[in-house]
Computed example of a mutant assay.
Amino acid sequence: MYRKYFKRVIDFVLSLIAIIVLSPAMVTIAILVRTKIGSPILFHQKRVGKDEKIFTMYKFRSMTNEKNENGELLPDNIRLTRLGRILRSTSLDELPELINILKGDMSIVGPRPLLESYLPYYTEEERLRHSVRGGLTPPEVLYNDFTPTWDKQLEYEVHYAKNVSFLLDLQVVCATIKGVLARNNNDYGSYIREEIWDIREKRKDV
């Protein structure tokens, strides 16, 4: 009952309240991003949601659009700005995802919405992560694992998808409050992970 009906109602109500309450902070961040990083203020990207439906996810920009002499974007670690690291460490860059939650693309708690190009690299078991909406805050926070390997992240997410409940969501939200502080102390904002296809293609070659 919770998974099918109440979770969506809670997501809608809480995201609406959060957008209203946090609107001054979101406007302030938008001004800082426009001033320090440039336009556009929002980063948007196609992601995979519930039942593998594609939607557009929004975040505040954390990187510049700097390119090399060939017109190619520079590596992420070079384009990531100081403001961007702060936004990522505090998860403030993810505030625009509240709009995605309000629309029904995402949930407050759930697996991370990932790129469509990742789909061929999941096992059938791992694809169960798409049986629920992707979330603003992921289940990995329950394990104090802020930089999990791909295998671990997907394992956490499948376990969550199989065991969704109000109590589990409440535990994730509570762990997230503590986790944001830990992420900031560990300079999470500078963390850039190797792509899943690089890791799993290497595994095939072994």
Rank of each mutant, 00 (worst) to 15 (best):
M1L: 10
R3K: 15
Y5D: 08
K7P: 10
V9R: 06
I10C: 10
L16K: 06
A18Y: 05
I19L: 13
I20N: 07
V21Q: 06
V21M: 02
L22P: 02
L22S: 07
L22T: 03
S23T: 00
A25E: 02
V27G: 08
T28I: 05
T28L: 15
I29A: 05
I31D: 07
V33G: 04
R34M: 00
R34C: 02
P40C: 02
H44M: 12
H44C: 10
Q45W: 00
Q45C: 04
K46Y: 10
G49I: 01
K50R: 09
K50E: 09
K50C: 05
D51T: 02
E52M: 15
T56W: 00
Y58R: 07
Y58G: 00
Y58T: 01
F60M: 06
R61N: 04
M63L: 02
N65Q: 15
N65H: 11
N65F: 03
E66L: 10
K67F: 07
N68Q: 04
E69F: 00
E69N: 09
N70R: 09
G71S: 03
G71N: 07
E72Q: 14
E72T: 11
L73E: 13
L74P: 04
P75S: 01
N77R: 12
N77M: 05
I78A: 15
R79Y: 02
T81P: 11
R82T: 10
R82C: 09
R82K: 15
R85F: 00
I86P: 12
S89T: 04
S89M: 07
L92W: 07
L92G: 11
E94S: 10
E94K: 14
I99G: 12
I101P: 13
K103C: 03
D105H: 11
M106W: 12
S107P: 10
V109P: 15
V109T: 12
G110N: 12
R112N: 11
P113G: 06
P113Q: 06
E116T: 08
S117L: 08
L119N: 11
P120M: 03
Y121A: 08
Y121T: 06
R129S: 12
H130S: 07
S131V: 07
R133V: 01
R133D: 12
G134S: 06
G135C: 06
G135V: 08
L136N: 14
T137K: 09
L142Q: 06
N144Y: 10
N144H: 14
N144Q: 14
D145S: 09
F146G: 01
F146N: 08
F146R: 08
P148S: 06
K152Q: 05
K152M: 04
K152C: 04
L154W: 13
Y156S: 11
E157N: 15
E157R: 04
Y160R: 05
N163A: 11
N163C: 05
N163R: 13
V164S: 14
S165G: 07
F166I: 03
V173L: 15
I177H: 06
K178P: 05
G179E: 08
G179D: 09
G179S: 04
V180S: 03
L181S: 15
A182N: 04
R183E: 08
N184Q: 11
N186R: 13
D187Y: 11
Y188Q: 14
Y188F: 15
G189D: 02
I192W: 12
R193D: 12
E195L: 05
W197G: 07
I199K: 14
R200M: 13
E201R: 00
K202F: 00
K202C: 02
R203K: 15
R203C: 06
K204R: 13
V206T: 13
